[in-house]
């Protein structure tokens, strides 16, 4: 039966690749952190606080990347009814929300010495904040139904609607911010990046992606196992 044949193969495959992905993620993040904290230079204006960038920027990348993954998974769930797509979307949403939160929190920490305030309504930060709300809505809708299939379907439609809206929201927030802040505040990432800063950034970015992949696989696996346990429990309840 197609619903379960695929998951079986998925589980076997993920068991093989998972350790490798996890090890590579840990290695890359370790190397990236070392380069970021010890090798790369401090900024002549910002001092050591520029090192927050090595967590902030990859987190912001992940926030967008994971939302894109969710939208793609949602589309394949709605169009082809692929049985794993819903699980991928469900597993990814909280991870994406955490990365988005991390981007906001590090942005705020970075902003304090720069702007003298924990929060400014900068166009980038504000769009990321809205993205965070989109993640929260997706997670809330997914969990709001007693029937998990319905929650997954509704959340898939919402993810696609949200995905179409992300560029519109981003554009309007930028428009809004230029209306209200004609003099641009210091941007969170400089226009040109020196290679000594680029390498740690890339290592962190790739490390974060692999870390997400590993975490997502673990979460999908546990969802599959939980479904199996549930099915067994209902079967047992019916047998008695």
């Amino acid at each position: 039966m197609h619903r379960f044949a695929n998951p079986g193969r998925f589980l076997r495959l993920s068991n093989i690749v998972l350790p490798w992905i996890a090890a590579m993620a840990a290695g890359l993040i370790a190397v990236g952190l070392y380069l970021a904290l010890f090798v790369s230079p401090a900024d002549y204006q910002q001092g050591d606080s520029v090192r927050i960038m090595y967590v902030h920027v990859p987190s912001a990348w992940m926030a967008m990347f994971i939302y894109t993954v969710i939208a793609a998974a949602s589309a394949s769930s709605l169009i082809w009814r692929h049985p794993l797509a819903d699980l991928v979307a469900k597993a990814s949403s909280p991870i994406g929300a955490c990365f988005t939160f991390l981007a906001l929190a590090t942005g705020s920490l970075w902003g304090k010495p720069m702007w003298g305030a924990w929060w400014v309504w900068d166009a980038r930060l504000t769009s990321v904040l809205v993205l965070f709300f989109l993640y929260l809505g997706h997670m809330a809708l997914m969990g709001a139904f007693d029937n998990p299939t319905r929650g997954a379907r509704a959340a898939a439609i919402l993810a696609l609607v949200g995905f179409v809206n992300v560029p519109i929201i981003k554009f309007s927030v930028e428009w809004w911010s230029t209306l209200h802040q004609p003099s641009s505040v210091l941007r969170l990432d400089g226009p040109s990046i020196h290679p000594s800063m680029l390498w740690p950034l890339l290592a962190m970015g790739l490390g974060f992606k692999l870390y997400y992949l590993a975490l997502m696989l673990v979460r999908v696996k546990s969802e599959l196992i939980a479904a199996r346990v549930n099915a067994r429990a209902t079967a047992a309840a019916e047998a008695t």
Binding site: M1, F4, G8, L11, R12, N15, R228, A231, R232, A235
Partner: peptide
């Protein structure tokens, strides 16, 4: 029941 018995992993 058949699905449940099938070893998947």
């Amino acid at each position: 029941a058949e699905l449940d018995a099938e070893p998947a992993w």
